[in-house]
Design a protein around this nucleic acid. Structure first.
Length: 995
RNA sequence: GCCGGCGUGGUGGAACGGUAGACACGGUCCCCUUAAAAGGGACUGCCCUCGGGCGUGCGGGUUCGACUCCCGCCGCCGGCACCA
């Protein structure tokens, strides 16, 4: 201990005590302990078996705990103080849990594929791997200097060939699977083929809903059928093409405004042949299983919104001219079927060409021919189009040129045109016109709707513009009429808007069924039963979720383990040919061919020797073309939490026993509801991207038996963002916030020019980032950690306030001073027992800090430690002070500080005479006997206001307390002679006298 | 429009239905010092006639008692949205 004390390098000025806890001393302590932790492998968490199992016997009796941070992208500019908030939070929790007897796994890796490194490569010609690896090294250094206790043997990067080999392997697992809707799970394609061959299953697809026997299919048909069943498949579909990013994007990567999530660039719909992952097959489980996991309500709601489950019915409407042909619609209100007075199909609906009539029905209103669209759509004559064929062609052309963005901007004005055809309302036999209109989307439901203008506002507006009748079949409440100035019971033709609420069904009866008088929920059930019996439809659930577009036209991503044969059909490579390593190219830019909005050829096309390959896939050497797209960045982050468990395994992505131990093993709280990572901390921005994709992959792996839990992340916690003042100049450009001077009263200025203050998320784009290095240099890492934890609850956004940091620094300084003499470096700890006030205070602190740590309330834990330390300070500086700090209190205080400020805690722990690391020390346990006082001070309320405080014995009975209270002169004064009607005694809390 | 979350001192924030404002910043005063810094101590929600009055976005309700629970508003943040 003296040796360590002597090794301190006092870098202070003459007048600063030599052993004061300041930045220089803190930095010295921190550097030494970081070296020692690394040398001793202090944070290594042993696996139960296999390569990393050394030392497991030491923790074998402990419950496991898996604490995880969201995978960071290794950015070139390094961390700012906003980044580590969540990382420090998990570190504190992991350290606390280790001290309370858990085997804690906490590791860190790098989501290192992605655009910035590639864009930098395009600019500089530097290989993305070079920048990526340099950035990872920088980030690793920064994490180390924050004192984060990661098991560094488990670190992975998605860009490591050994890692993405397994990403490709998972892709193959998904490729070789199909979704068995009866079993509601993924199964190997091989099982599907076996059942088809055995004749126990027919080949059912959209064109053959009745199913075909397997022998009836040609070899090519069989292959196409199987490929169409796979969980990952090639399909021609309208996709989101973002020219500015040079790639297509998944729906989840496009904002509601039709721009890219990353960079906010415009996105265009373009039909392209791309890889898609069949996440829609899992829509129901992804929605239902949200109930199994302990996630913030906000995130679960976002996922539910995104999945967009909608309960209703599909109904088939026969065409009037050709009853064998039907148009299927989806509706959430089948109870309004009797009020359907028209139908609308999406313009791209495949049935449109078949149902277009030859000529207009002369009795139909001119508006149906598009007469009202003159001026809205180019080329429409004032009288409307001459024939249905012209109208449909004209309208389809118009609709196809409109981007999602335009449709947003142009608002809700309804356009559309009649196809000339009629369909038959199956409930009442009425012939109703069939329109096409772009307010009906091909991508949702069946791409066709029934128009019930009385009970759907969009249909109502369409009916108004196209002179369609409005028939009410649900009676609104009288107040609804009155609010609109109508007499109750007025016909729907007089309504100013649709009535979309629930009500009593009316005018809804035929020979087979009557809904009249039924409440909406009953009417839906009744009509659904009738539809099924009549063969006209059935209850159905649809989802808004679309399949996941999985191809990217980038270089810096995982290559697909896919080649194309000479028929142009995809062939999966065998596992033995993994990894498919990224080839070298001379330029990382996509090759632009033709006009600038055409899809460029991916950069991998430049690797010509790689793109063409001769392989023996079982039928002799043949030439194949490789897939040139790469996987999206989300691929690698879908499963990294599994690789941390067994990072070097080259026989499996994770060993089964190791996976079971960490993912579903016993926890201190008993059996988990769904298993998985015990605590996952990250930002809210991944609510429907990473978190949805990862759940999807995990469920596929679960179905195939590669993991043992249905969900990957049992508990999710969203850390808040650090906000900071940002400043804009007169042009609205952000200026470097650190160079701004002034204050609220006198105004702010930058280089002499006035600037406006804003508050925003700390970051590069607002030029308001604060580097951890700055804070470390001024106060030390422990102060930074403590400040980030103390400034507020972990899940709240909070403004960075440099002025407040001194507060927690003073706390550490005072704590140090209570244990160490600042001038001599001698211990101020004494073996004397704490007195009768201090010891209970200590135990109350222990109990409180434990509860706070368990609940991730680190801010209040810090407050409680501060309070206890202030009490020590008062004792030492007060009358008769200088007696030193009782070792019993010092030990406990330092141990409780260890998760939050591990370096100074280690230093003090060693100075207290311990020769093993505080990281593995037991967390103090409160003695319950010391948590109850002999005597308590009760506030006394008279008529709800606190008027006095009375000391009574803690175990006094209600009557005794009441008597003591009534005897108090201040109580008597407050009562002023009024009789006490009732005395409420809350033992140990307060007394309320009701007058 | 639908859904979710949040509104507490000058500031960040505390409060199992039980003393509103813990802890910290800032501020005022005092001690130490030749002085300053650092350090230590006291006070610090608002109003006030110094007895008290008022206070957790607003208005109701439940309760002996409400920041907390319920109902109705307002404001801010976020998600979804021509989704049938």
């Amino acid at each position: 201990m003296t040796e360590r004390a002597a090794s301190l390098r006092p870098a202070h000025g003459d007048d600063v005590p030599r052993f004061r806890y300041d930045a220089a001393l803190a930095n010295d302590i921190e550097a030494r302990w970081q070296d020692r932790w690394e040398a001793e492998g202090t944070y290594h968490a042993p696996n139960p078996s296999g390569e990393l199992s050394g030392g497991f016997e030491r923790v074998a009796g402990r419950p496991k705990l898996y604490v995880l941070d969201m995978f960071p992208y290794p950015s070139g500019v390094g961390l700012h103080v906003g980044h580590p908030l969540g990382y420090i939070g998990t570190d504190v929790y992991a350290r606390y849990k280790r001290m309370t007897g858990h085997n804690v796994l906490h590791a860190m890796g790098y989501d290192a594929f992605g655009l910035p490194a590639e864009q930098y490569a395009v600019q500089t010609g530097q290989h993305p791997r070079v920048t990526t690896e340099a950035n990872i090294a920088t980030m690793r250094r920064q994490f180390r200097s924050l004192g984060l206790g990661h098991d560094d043997r488990r670190s992975v990067a998605t860009t490591d060939v050994d890692y993405y080999r397994w990403t490709q392997w998972i892709f193959l697992q998904i490729y070789h699977s199909w979704f068995d809707h009866d079993a509601q799970r993924a199964r190997p394609v091989a099982e599907l083929e076996a059942e088809l061959e055995a004749g126990t299953r027919l080949a059912v697809d959209d064109e053959h809903p009745e199913g075909r026997p397997w022998p009836a299919l040609s070899a090519a048909e069989r292959r196409r059928f199987i490929d169409d069943q796979r969980l990952v498949y090639l399909a021609e579909a309208p996709v989101n093409w973002c020219p500015a990013l040079g790639t297509v994007l998944a729906n989840e990567e496009v904002t509601a405004e039709g721009r890219s999530e990353r960079g906010n660039f415009p996105v265009y719909k373009r039909p392209l042949r791309q890889w898609q992952m069949r996440i829609t097959a899992y829509a129901e489980r992804l929605a239902d299983d949200l109930d199994l996991i302990d996630w913030p309500e906000r995130i679960r709601t976002m996922q539910r919104n995104w999945i967009g489950r909608s309960v209703g019915a599909t109904v088939r409407f026969p065409l009037a001219d050709d009853p064998s042909n039907t148009v299927e619609v989806f509706t959430t209100r089948p109870d309004t079927l009797f009020g359907a007075t028209f139908m609308v199909l999406a313009p791209e609906h495949p049935l449109v060409p078949q149902l277009v009539a030859r000529a207009w029905d002369p009795s139909a209103p001119p508006s149906w021919r598009g007469a009202g669209l003159n001026g809205i759509i180019d080329g429409v004559p004032a009288t409307g189009w001459a024939s249905p064929t012209d109208a449909v062609a004209g309208y389809r052309r118009y609709a196809s040129t409109r981007s999602d963005l335009e449709r947003q901007v142009e608002g809700k004005a309804k356009t559309g045109v009649w196809t000339g055809a009629y369909a038959v309302n199956p409930t009442n036999g009425q012939h109703i016109p069939v329109f096409i209109a772009d307010y009906v989307l091909m991508g949702y439901g069946t791409g066709a709707i029934m128009g019930v203008p009385a009970h759907d506002q969009r249909d109502f507006e369409f009916a108004r513009d196209f002179d369609l009748s409005v028939v009410g079949v649900v009676r609104p409440p009288d107040t609804w009429y009155e609010d609109r100035g109508l007499a109750p019971g007025s016909p729907a033709s007089a309504w100013p808007e649709a009535f979309t609420g629930a009500g009593e069904a009316m005018a809804s009866a035929n020979q087979g069924v009557s809904l009249d008088g039924l409440a909406t929920a009953d009417a839906i059930a009744t009509v659904n039963a009738w539809l099924a019996a009549a063969g006209a439809g059935e209850a159905t659930v649809t989802y808004r979720l679309r399949d996941w577009l999985f191809s990217r036209q980038r270089y810096w991503g995982e290559p697909f383990p896919i080649v194309y044969d000479d028929e142009g059909l995809p062939v999966a490579l065998p596992e033995s040919m993994l990894p498919v390593a990224l080839p070298e190219v001379d330029d990382y830019r996509p090759t632009v061919v033709g006009d600038d909005d055409s899809l460029p050829e991916p950069p991998l096309a430049r690797a010509r020797d790689w793109a063409q390959v001769t392989l023996d896939l079982g039928d002799g050497p043949r030439t194949y073309r490789r897939e040139l797209n790469t996987m999206p960045q989300w691929a690698g982050s879908c499963w990294y939490y599994l690789r941390y468990l067994d990072p070097h395994n080259d026989a499996a992505l994770v060993d089964a026993a190791v996976e079971r131990y960490w993912m579903q093993g016993s926890t201190s709280e008993g059996a988990p509801a769904s298993g998985g990572v015990d605590l996952y901390v990250g930002g809210v921005e991944h609510a429907v991207l990473h978190l949805l994709y990862a759940r999807f992959w995990h469920k596929v792996l679960f179905d195939l038996g590669h993991v043992s839990t249905p969900e990957p992340f049992q508990r999710l916690f969203n850390q808040g963002y650090i906000l900071a003042d940002a400043f804009v100049d007169e042009r609205g450009v952000y200026v470097d916030a650190s160079q701004v001077v002034g204050d609220v009263e006198s105004g702010f200025s930058f280089e002499g020019r006035p600037v406006q203050r804003q508050v925003g998320k700390m970051g590069k784009s607002l030029r308001n980032a604060v580097s951890p290095d700055t804070i470390r240099a001024a106060y030390g890492t422990d102060t930074l950690r403590l400040y980030e934890m103390a400034m507020g609850p972990l899940d709240a956004d909070r403004p960075w306030n440099a002025r407040d940091i001194i507060g927690v620094h003073r706390f550490l300084q005072k704590l140090w001073r209570n244990l160490v003499d600042e001038t001599t470096g001698e211990s101020r700890v004494v073996t004397t027992a704490p007195d009768d006030e201090l010891r209970p205070a200590l135990h109350r602190t222990i109990a409180g800090v434990r509860a706070d740590m368990d609940a991730l309330r680190f801010n209040t834990a810090v407050a409680k430690l501060t309070e206890l330390n202030n009490r020590l300070t008062r004792t030492q500086s007060g009358a008769g002070g200088g007696g030193g700090t009782a070792a019993e209190v010092a030990d406990a205080l330092v141990a409780m500080l260890a998760p939050l400020a591990p370096h100074v805690a280690e230093e003090l722990w060693a100075r207290l005479g311990h020769d093993t690391s505080v990281v593995w020390a037991p967390f103090p346990v409160a003695d319950p006997a010391l948590l109850v006082d002999d005597e308590v001070e009760l506030p006394v309320q008279v008529a709800g206001k606190v008027r006095a405080r009375v000391r009574v014995a803690a175990d006094a009975g209600d009557a005794a307390v009441e008597a003591a209270v009534l005897a108090d002169p201040r109580v008597q004064a407050a009562l002023a002679g009024r009789p006490v009607r009732r005395a409420v005694v809350v033992p140990g809390r307060l007394v309320n006298l009701v007058v």
